[in-house]
């Protein structure tokens, strides 16, 4: 698994001018930025499937790596890039089985150095780690908003109806690459990062939008 750096070494290069400008009281913020990157690079090593290419940041990761959000222009750039990565389902099938979706939403597995494979089949969606979904599951996290009644609240009575198309495409894009709408979203880019395949995402689509799914009861 490898997220390609979109803008090469922009992150690392920032410090040079700053060093010249640094005054005697200590390193400048830009110099510290540069040094932090060097410290990070020196500290990590490969462990099984978790390789050091994982700390090579792309534009969006670098833009969202401080306590202050990126400038509006940079955020726009990140979102535009994210949107351009989204692939619509090649089969044309946006929906699978919500039962499978529930299973994927429950599983927090995958991509750690104690996992044996980076294959999508080895990964869960970790949805309940951060979101409420079905009413029956009370062990849910709160980092993301509640998704209980996600489809119902958006008036989806028939997932195949033309009126539902907007929310269907929005939801697919959110799952595939959520940075399309929020540059610094905490949500993993399930499609773009190769965490879940089309079928798995289609199962999650059904979990979220199918009127028969427990999410919409």
């Amino acid at each position: 698994m490898n997220i390609k750096p979109a803008f090469g070494n922009t992150v690392v290069g920032v410090g040079v001018a700053a060093i010249l400008a640094a005054c005697a009281t200590g390193p400048s913020p830009a110099e510290l930025d540069r040094e932090a990157i060097a410290v990070i690079r020196a500290a990590f090593r490969d462990q099984n499937i978790a390789k050091i290419d994982r700390i090579q940041q792309d534009l969006g990761q670098a833009a969202c790596s401080s306590g202050t959000p990126p400038s509006e222009a940079l955020a726009e750039q990140v979102m535009a890039q994210a949107k351009a990565t989204v692939k619509w389902p090649t089969s044309g099938q946006y929906f699978g089985d919500w039962r499978e979706g529930e299973r994927i939403a429950q599983s927090g597995r995958g991509m750690t150095w104690t996992d044996s494979s980076t294959a999508t089949s080895a990964n869960g969606g970790s949805c309940y780690n951060c979101h409420q979904l079905s009413k029956a599951e009370v062990s849910f996290g709160t980092i993301g908003p509640s998704l209980y009644n996600y489809g119902k609240n958006r008036g989806v009575a028939d997932i195949l109806a033309p009126t539902a198309q907007g929310i269907v495409e929005y939801t697919w894009m959110k799952l595939y690459n959520g940075k399309s709408y929020n540059a610094c979203s905490n949500m993993p880019r399930f499609g773009h990062a190769g965490l879940l395949d089309e079928k798995q995402m289609a199962h999650l689509m059904a979990l979220l939008l199918d009127p028969k799914s427990p999410v919409n009861q």
């Binding site: 994982r54 990761q61 969202c64 991509m111 993993p188 990062a193």
Partner: peptide, 8 residues
């Protein structure tokens, strides 16, 4: 605050 990895 450093973001990285396959899950950002």
């Amino acid at each position: 605050f450093f973001r990285g990895g396959p899950m950002d």
